[in-house]
């Protein structure tokens, strides 16, 4: 590595520390507030260190909820979020990997047409076609259901593309060897393609888990029944109350709980996460 000898070895550390302070400030204060009592921040007694109300606040948020500000218990919401994120990630991967397999390893009529149909979906984020998509979902009777929460966002051109790209790097000779070894398309998929795509699947699963967990607009639209609330979307009621009533401590505790799972996933599986991110955007 070429670096000017001796020079600039401290400056980057100083600048990076400043950067980290800014980047970490929101989360730090969120922790501080989520462990303080109402009186702490109403009287201006809010310090820069966590308070002593952690257990009380988090218990309120998780278990009992706060009906006066429209907050139902977050525990079930977390479970919903988790199920939705896993369903979206698993569903997207399953659907995409088989469609990519079909497009890569078979020649059939309308193959190109099918591919472009999938491609078009890439261009249409749910935000763009909110109202009609909502209409279709309502017509199908999927409002306030787990299916309605997940299925409409489960088709993914990105994942299909990614898998097709991965598949194109699998040498043709492996397919030929498999044909000689008496492995048909189904056996080849399970015995060769799937194991060889394992890392890509894992990396993609992380990205899609985060994507699913952080869904906001769609759950907001299709759920009116608190039974189906997800935590990221459920928090907006609190956010709106926080501006007028003193519930910042509960809002922040909820926020911390809502971001914990995806953040932990990123930090504990950093290598795979980075790989997944870079790959999906190729």
């Amino acid at each position: 590595m070429v670096r000017p000898a001796g020079a600039g070895s401290v400056l980057p550390h100083i600048l990076l520390s400043a950067a980290l302070a800014i980047m970490l400030a929101p989360i730090w204060f969120a922790i501080v507030v989520s462990t303080s009592s109402v009186s702490d921040f109403l009287t201006g007694g809010l310090g820069v260190l966590p308070g002593d109300q952690a257990i009380a606040n988090y218990r309120t948020v998780l278990v009992t909820g706060a009906s006066n500000v429209g907050l139902s218990p977050v525990g079930p919401m977390l479970l919903n979020s988790f199920m939705m994120a896993v369903a979206i990630a698993a569903g997207k991967i399953a659907i995409s990997i088989i469609s990519a397999y079909a497009v890569a390893w078979f020649r059939f009529p309308f193959r190109t047409a099918a591919f472009w149909t999938i491609f078009i979906t890439l261009m249409l984020p749910v935000e763009v076609r909110i109202l009609p998509t909502f209409g279709v979902t309502a017509d199908l009777g999927l409002l306030n259901s787990f299916a309605g929460l997940t299925i409409p966002i489960i088709a993914s051109a990105t994942a299909t593309f990614l898998f097709r790209q991965v598949f194109m790097t699998i040498p043709d000779e492996l397919t030929e060897a498999a044909r000689i070894d008496n492995a048909g398309p189904v056996r080849f998929f399970f015995d060769v393609v799937l194991p060889l795509s394992r890392t890509n699947i894992a990396a993609l699963a992380i990205i899609l888990f985060i994507y699913g967990w952080n869904q906001y607009l769609w759950p907001l639209l299709v759920t009116t029944d608190t039974k189906y609330y997800t935590v990221v979307m459920g928090i907006q009621r609190l956010a709106q109350s926080a501006e007028s009533s003193p519930v910042w401590h509960l809002a922040m505790a909820t926020a911390i709980l809502a971001m914990l799972p995806p953040v932990l996933v990123v930090l504990s599986m950093q290598k795979l996460f980075v790989r997944g991110l870079v790959e999906t955007e190729k």
Binding site: E176, A177, I180, D191
Partner: peptide, 17 residues
Amino acid sequence: AGRDIAMVFQNYALYPH
């Protein structure tokens, strides 16, 4: 698979996993 042949490929085509 039905021809009762075996083949050795240029790049060996061993299943890497």
